[in-house]
Design a protein around this nucleic acid. Structure first.
Length: 582
RNA sequence: CGGGGUGUAGCGCAGUCUGGUUUAGCGCGCUUGCUUCGGGAGCAAGAGGUCGGCGGUUCAAAUCCGCCCACCCCGACCA
C-alpha cells in the first residue's frame, strides 16, 4: 500500500496561507495556493510543492493502473520535437495548438511538444512491420507545453501542464473501435477512482483531426466548457457541437407581406435594430460574411442566435475560417459592414441556419448604406445554397433526440478520446503488411488526460468552506496526525509511536508536530483536507486513547491507542473501496 | 489578439480623485521574551517597502502626464 515516506510537518515545506492571493479566482486555484500545493512562477506556470506533487502522483498511479489493465504500455518521448515531422503531418503552421517554437544554435527549428502524434507515429512506422504486431496502445505521462493565448483559472488552464497521452494503432476499423471502447472504460474507471463526477459528451475533433471524439467533462462551476445535456434521454454534447432539436423551430402562420426598404441610419447591430424598430431579434436575419480557405461565404442566422464557427467550419470542410473584413464585405455585397443581407447576394455561397427557414417577413440588411429591408421571405426573396445547423444551442432549446428541454452546465474537460483514422499514419507513413501481404495504413486513436487539471477538478468537486476534502484515493496523505501540545512528553511519545507504526506499515502519514496552538492545527488540517485525522492529545493519552475523525462527514471515533493501527488501516481500505478502488 | 480591471512589506488591504503634515500606514504572517495552550491567543520589543519599471511636469510625486511591463477577468483555442 502507498508511497512510503516520512513526513513531519515541522521539517517539511508545507506552507499554508490564511488568505488567497488576489489573482486567484477559481476555488481550486485559491485552495491549491492556500493549502500549499503549488506556487505561481508566471502566468500559467506553476511549481508543484511537495504536497501538490503527492496528489499529482496519486492521480498518475491510478491512470497507470487503469491503462495497464487495458494492455497499454508506458513509454516516454522527448518534449523537444524537430520541425520536420510536423511539416510531414502538415501541422507545423497549425495555430490551434499554441506551439512554442524555438531554434538551437545551429538554427534548427524545434517545438516544445504540445502533443505527440507525430513522434509516436514516426516511432511506430519504424518499429511495426506486420499486422501480427498490432494492436498497440502506447502512452506516456509527461509535461506538455502550449503557449495558451490566455492561461486561466490556475491549474485548470496552464501553459505547462502534465498530461497522460496515449496512442493506439490498429489493423482495421473493428480493432480501432475496440481500442476506443477500452479507453472509454479505462477513463470511466480512472475518473471514478479519482472521486470525480464526469459526463461524457460528443465533441469536435478540432486540431487533432479524425472522425469521432468524446470528452470527459468534470462538472464544475468554474469550468470553461459549457455542456448541453438532456435530462430525459442520454444526449449530451459540448456546446460547440450540440445539435439543435427541431421542436423549437415552429414557423409562424403570418402571411407574407411585400418587401419594403426602410431607412436605418447608422443602425448596424441586432441590438440597435431591435431598439430602433421595436421588433424582436427573432425576426431578424443576421448575415455574417466569412472567408473560408479563400472562398467567401454568407452565413444566415436568426437575430437572437449565435453562429458556431465550429459547426460552420465542419459544414464547409475548410481549414481556415475568418470573418471577412470591411473591404471584402463591400466587394461581395456592395454595401458596408452592418448592412448585409441575403437578398440579391450573387457572388457568394449562402448557408442558412435551420432556424432561418422559419422566419416569415424577416428583417435584414439591404446591402446599402443605412438601409434594411422588411418582410423578407426565403424562397420568394432569396434562396440559400444550403440549409444547415450552424448556430449554437440556446437556453430553452429542445433535445435533438427526444425533444425534452436541454440543460446547460459548466464543466472542465479532463479527458478526451479520439478516433483519428488514418490521418497521421498516412502523412507519416505508419504502414504494415496485412494477412494478404498488402501494405496497409494503421488506423489510430489518441486519448488524453490532463493530470494537473484533473487534480484541480477534483478540488473543484471536493471542498467545503474551510478547504479541500480529498477523496482517499488521491489525497497527498491518508492520515493526518494532529499532535496537541508538543510540551507534553508523554503525548509526543505516543504520537511519534503511532506515526512510526503507521508509516512502517505503508500508511501515508503526516505528523503535525509543530509547536502551534490547537486552533491553528485544526484550521490547517481543514485546509489541507486529509481524509482521516488522528488527534493525539494529553487529555486522551491519559485515558490511553486517541481520536479518529473523518474529515468528510465529521464522524468521530474514540479508540484505544493499541488499536489505532488496525482501525486506521481498516478505515483506509473502506474509504478506498468506496471510490471503486481495484 | 480585442474588450475591461489591478499593481503600495511574504499575504490581504488603506492612502492616489483634491501633490506637501506620512519619517508611507493597518491587519495577518515573521523574529525575540514572558504568559497562554482542544478550533487561526495576550502583552511587550523588533525585522521587513527603489509605492511595478522608465521618462516627464513641479520648489515638491505613491499621488499629475506619457510610454512600457506584469498579473487578473470576459471573448476566440485546448487536456
Amino acid at each position: 500500500m502507498g508511497r512510503r515516506t516520512f513526513m513531519k510537518w515541522s521539517q517539511s515545506l508545507i506552507r499554508t496561507l490564511r488568505e488567497a492571493p488576489r489573482e486567484a479566482e477559481a476555488v481550486s486555484h485559491k485552495l491549491m495556493l492556500r493549502a500549499g500545493l503549488a506556487r505561481k512562477l508566471a502566468a500559467g506556470l506553476y511549481t508543484y510543492l511537495p504536497l501538490g506533487l503527492r496528489a499529482i502522483r496519486k492521480v498518475e498511479d491510478i491512470v497507470r493502473q487503469e491503462m495497464n489493465k487495458k494492455g497499454a504500455q508506458e513509454l516516454l518521448m522527448p518534449t523537444l520535437q524537430p520541425k520536420e515531422l510536423w511539416e510531414q503531418s502538415g501541422r507545423w503552421d497549425d495555430k490551434e495548438l499554441g506551439m512554442l517554437k524555438l531554434k538551437n544554435r545551429e538554427e534548427r527549428e524545434f517545438v516544445l511538444g504540445p502533443t505527440h502524434e507525430e513522434i509516436i507515429t514516426d516511432l511506430v512506422s519504424k518499429e511495426v512491420r506486420s499486422y501480427k504486431e498490432l494492436p498497440l496502445n502506447l502512452y506516456q505521462i509527461q509535461t506538455k507545453f502550449r503557449d495558451e493565448m490566455r492561461p486561466r483559472f490556475g491549474m485548470i488552464r496552464a501553459r505547462e501542464f502534465i498530461m497522460k497521452d496515449a496512442y493506439s494503432f490498429h489493423v482495421d476499423e473493428g480493432s480501432a473501435r475496440k481500442g476506443y471502447q477500452d479507453m472509454y472504460e479505462a477513463y470511466s474507471n480512472i475518473f471514478r477512482r479519482c472521486g470525480l463526477k464526469t459526463q461524457v459528451v460528443e465533441a469536435d475533433p478540432g486540431a487533432m483531426g479524425g472522425s469521432k471524439s468524446e470528452e470527459f467533462i468534470a462538472l464544475a462551476d468554474s469550468g470553461e466548457d459549457i455542456i448541453v445535456s438532456c435530462p430525459q434521454c442520454n444526449y449530451a454534447a459540448n456546446l460547440e457541437s450540440a445539435q439543435q432539436g427541431d421542436e423549437q423551430l415552429r414557423k409562424s402562420r403570418e402571411k407574407m407581406k411585400l418587401l419594403e426598404e426602410i431607412e436605418t441610419p447608422g443602425i448596424k447591430t441586432i441590438k440597435e435594430l431591435e431598439d430602433f424598430l421595436g421588433e424582436k431579434p427573432e425576426k431578424m436575419i443576421k448575415t455574417l460574411i466569412y472567408s473560408a480557405d479563400g472562398k467567401t461565404v454568407a452565413a444566415l442566422i436568426a437575430g437572437h442566435r449565435e453562429l458556431s464557427e465550429v459547426k460552420l467550419r465542419k459544414n464547409l470542410k475548410c481549414e481556415n475560417l475568418e470573418m471577412a473584413d470591411e473591404r471584402l464585405i463591400e466587394e461581395v455585397t456592395g454595401g458596408p459592414l452592418g448592412f448585409s443581407g441575403p437578398v440579391g447576394l450573387k457572388k457568394v455561397k449562402i448557408i442558412a441556419d435551420v432556424g432561418v427557414t422559419k422566419i416569415v417577413n424577416g428583417i435584414t440588411g439591404a446591402n446599402k448604406q443605412d438601409k434594411h429591408i422588411r418582410n423578407v421571405n426565403m424562397g420568394r426573396d432569396y434562396n440559400p445554397d444550403e440549409v444547415a445547423d450552424i448556430s449554437y444551442v440556446r437556453e430553452g432549446d429542445r433535445c435533438p433526440k427526444c425533444s425534452h428541454e436541454l440543460a446547460m452546465r459548466r464543466g472542465i474537460e479532463v479527458g478526451h478520446i479520439f478516433n483519428l483514422g488514418r490521418r497521421y499514419s498516412q502523412s507519416l507513413g505508419a504502414k504494415f503488411l496485412n494477412e494478404k501481404g498488402e501494405e496497409t495504413l494503421a488506423i489510430m486513436g489518441c486519448y488524453g488526460i490532463g493530470i494537473t487539471r484533473t487534480v484541480a477538478a477534483i478540488i473543484e468537486q471536493n471542498h467545503d468552506e474551510n478547504g479541500i476534502v480529498w477523496p482517499m484515493s488521491v489525497s497527498p496523505y491518508q492520515v493526518h496526525i494532529i499532535l496537541l501540545n508538543v510540551n507534553s512528553r508523554e503525548t509526543v511519545k505516543v504520537a511519534d509511536n503511532l506515526y512510526n507504526q503507521l508509516t512502517g506499515e505503508g500508511v501515508e502519514t503526516l505528523l503535525d508536530d509543530r509547536d502551534e496552538r490547537a486552533g491553528v492545527k485544526f484550521k490547517d488540517a481543514d485546509l489541507i483536507g486529509v481524509p482521516l485525522r488522528l488527534i493525539v492529545s494529553p487529555r486522551r493519552v491519559a485515558e490511553k486513547k486517541a481520536e479518529i475523525k473523518h474529515h468528510r462527514d465529521g464522524r468521530e471515533l474514540l479508540i484505544a491507542i493499541g488499536q489505532v493501527r488496525e482501525k486506521v488501516k481498516e478505515l483506509i481500505q473502506e474509504n478506498l473501496s468506496s471510490y471503486g478502488q481495484a
